[in-house]
Amino acid sequence: MYRLIESILIPVMALLLSLLVFSVFIMLSGSNALEVLATIYRGAFGSWFSWQNTLVRAAPLMLTALCTALPARIGLINIGGEGAMVVGGLCAAVVGISMNGMSPMVVMSAMVITGMLTAGCWVAMIGALKHYRNVNETISSLLLNYIAIAIMSFLILGPMRDPATLNNPSSFPIGEANMIGNIGESSIHWGLVFGLVVCIALWFLMRRTSFGFAVDMTGGNIRAAQISGLGVGKLIIITCFLAGAATGIAGVIEVAAVHGRANLSLNSGYGYAGILVAFLARHNPLAIIPVAILMGGIRASSGLLQRGFDLPDATTLVLQGIIFIVILASESLYGRIKWLRPMAVRHG
């Protein structure tokens, strides 16, 4: 009970503090902070229209957050979500384009599976390098992001480019029939369902199975895990593979549900924002869902802020950065809030 209250109370307090810091920042740059915050709220959750915008952005965030959250449970700080998303989306597009003409259901499944496998292997490589060569995973994952982006630029601006796309260089289309559509009448695509299902499934795996227990044990004390006979290397690689596979779906969605082709917007910062979501959710796949919706909302309000206040689109980046820093600083509060202590004693 004490743990639960603490793990809700501290992030909420940290969020409020970040909003305060952000308000001061906005006031210093000469805008009305309350109005800006109200606009962020309206742009994120004010109407059905903004809810749709928010959920569309939350879907890839749920998936990219898993790229950091799962490896974090086993003790790795992986920031390779951006690259994994690019690799998954790019490979799915190759499959989608080359299978064009076959039954849409087959093409869609093939794209999703390809995206998951390729991105999964991409991130598994980071885990393998860490385990077998002790290569720092944070650095290798960042380097792989840039390598993935370079490969994407090469392919999309070169061999895969559809000459008809002049202003926004893109690959050939995967075909209208093969696109993953929207849910009912809304403008929310099925990617949201993918995000929710994957988060819940991985939560179950991580918290309710012996595999998840082994992962948490390795993350807590790798020596103890080795001594108890766990195959630490295998655990690390499987965890990283799952993280990458989840993120690969985000890339597939970007290609198959949003654009219908692969273009440079595969690299639009969802991977990096996912790191923040993961830390904010304290690497719990279930908590990722509300946090991703919150962050999706902040991203969705960016346009409204630009139009309403003439604030740069980087404003929401600043807000995200402040939240991240305050959340990390709040880590040192766990177990140290005095007036919560008596509860711990009472409830054990």
Binding site: I77, T138, A314, L317, Q320, G321, I325, A329
Partner: peptide, 22 residues
């Protein structure tokens, strides 16, 4: 206490980039 310096580095990276663009 308990603050991970690698995570702080990543946070600073996101924050600084956003601030510089802003």
């Amino acid at each position: 206490d308990k603050v991970n310096d690698i995570a702080v580095g990543i946070a600073m990276m996101l924050f600084g980039t956003g601030l510089a663009f802003y």
